[in-house]
Amino acid sequence: MMSIEVRGLTKHYWLHGQKIAVLKGVDVAIAAGELVSLTGPSGAGKSTLLHVLGTLDTPSAGDVVMDGVDVWKQTPAAIARFRNERIGFVFQFHHLLPEFTALENVMMPGRVARRPVDEVEARARSLLGEVGLGQRVEHRPGELSGGEQQRVALARALMNEPRILLADEPTGNLDETTGRGIHEVIERLNRERGITAVVVTHNPRLAERMPRRLHLDREGLHDSAGAPAVVPATTT
């Protein structure tokens, strides 16, 4: 079963009256449970592609079908709910809410889903324990190291048990050892929970660890072997 299907995805911006094309007719299919790396030069549109896949940015044209749902044909509220329930995000700069503790940050997606606070808190504590931050729950992001913050962000992404994890250079701001640790967590989540994960990275060594590698450049999106990205290399 396909987890993500993208057909003819085009994205362009208007800047000072000038049309700037970022994505031109991207087609890709990613099967459920796949772990995919996305590499490419800066400015190729990796983050934009990830944002469109994550329903954070609207495509100029094309369809994005995720988990069987043609997401951009939904109402804004339905898209928000889809994002809350099925997609987890991890960003390069953690993007934690500085006013809230680690526990509150992790609880946030559950509270957005209006789940009972007690239940959400118990799960948040458990997730923080899983990423090794069981003793730091009351610490605010400013009191945590970069790696710890990223682990909090990872725990937050898993709060609502998403089917898809989208990570935009999750190790870009970390040293290699810490970055490898984060990657290992992502790999374990993919392996143990069957989460479909797309990881944008500039680190070729980390990309090579992924079962499937996609490369985005001016020519379009390709599998690392050079073949078009429509057919998944592996299916679990």
């Binding site: 954070l56 709910r81 809350n84 809410l97 997606p109």
Partner: peptide
């Protein structure tokens, strides 16, 4: 604005 975006990535709607 950053915090608003972060909340929206978590599925917070416009009304929220």
């Amino acid at each position: 604005s950053k915090e608003i975006s972060i909340l929206k990535t978590m599925g917070a709607t416009d009304t929220s």
